[in-house]
């Protein structure tokens, strides 16, 4: 059974007096550990689809199920818990908390969910453990010497790496990335993808959904879904290409 299931999902927005159909009867199944790239032009409904999966938005029609959770019918309170425990999000504009340092940004996410104990599988909220875990993740994204810097003191690539560390530190089952390289140049963008690639994948049982309008990123996914006018126009699996081989 698929891990993420979208059944006939539709989403309408009312902008002024006109109604826009962002998603039109989307049916989609995504397996656990799959790296999916959702590709399409602006206005195709990519981000809306991502938001449905991430519990950032609810569909106008249809049903979104993640594991055994019916995300589309959750109350606001349970949606918050769902986002906290199951989902990590990486935004195009990083969305770091400007008053918190890189380390504190990661700590924030960890303080909400705690850190899993290796010994018994339980969760600890010990501040030292949280701090060490946050450092560990920042180390993994190559920012061990920038942990006390504030977002305004970091470059765009560094900020995105902090955002990735923040999203992944809580070890979510789903990582959603909305145009993660959209605001970065090629070199930095590829570095970010390499980090994401290294920290996700089947071995970690983590499903990754990357939204992009950049076709060159599509080879990174095990599967590519192309959207146009709110509909899936193409859905294919492929042989994964490492990020370091991507070029745009």
């Amino acid at each position: 059974m698929a891990y993420i299931t979208l059944e006939n999902v539709g989403k309408n927005y009312i902008l002024g007096e006109t109604m826009t159909q962002a998603l039109d009867g989307i049916n989609l199944n995504i397996e656990l550990g799959e790296l999916v790239v959702i590709f399409g032009p602006s206005g195709a409904g990519k981000t809306t689809l991502l938001n449905m999966i991430g519990g950032l938005d609810i569909p106008t029609s249809g049903k979104v199920t993640v594991g055994e959770i019916s995300v589309s019918t959750l109350s606001a309170k349970w949606l918050t818990i769902y986002r906290r425990k199951k989902v990590g999000v990486v935004f195009q504009f990083f969305n770091l908390i400007s008053r918190l340092s890189a380390l504190e940004n990661v700590e924030y996410a960890l303080e909400l969910v705690g850190v899993k104990k290796e010994s018994n599988g339980g969760v600890t909220f010990d501040s030292k453990v949280i701090r060490n875990t946050a450092k560990e993740y920042l180390d993994k994204v190559g920012l061990h010497d920038r942990i006390h810097h504030f977002p305004a003191q970091l470059s765009g690539g560094e900020q995105q790496r902090v955002a990735i560390a923040r999203a992944l530190a809580k070890e979510p089952e789903i990582l959603l990335a909305d145009e993660p390289t959209g605001n970065l140049d090629f070199k930095i963008g590829r570095q970010v993808l390499e980090i994401m690639e290294a920290m996700t994948g089947k071995k970690l049982n983590r499903t990754v959904v990357i939204v992009t309008h950049n076709e060159a990123i599509c080879p990174l996914g095990d599967r590519v879904i192309r959207l146009s006018d709110g509909r899936i126009v193409e859905d294919y699996t492929q042989k994964f290409t490492p990020a370091e081989e991507l070029y745009w």
Binding site: K77, T80, R83, R84, V87, F91, I97, A109, L112
Partner: peptide, 14 residues
């Protein structure tokens, strides 16, 4: 507002 939205997205309770 945008910052509050980010915190909510991360899973901060209301």
């Amino acid at each position: 507002q945008r910052e509050i939205a980010t915190l909510l997205t991360i899973g901060t309770p209301n």
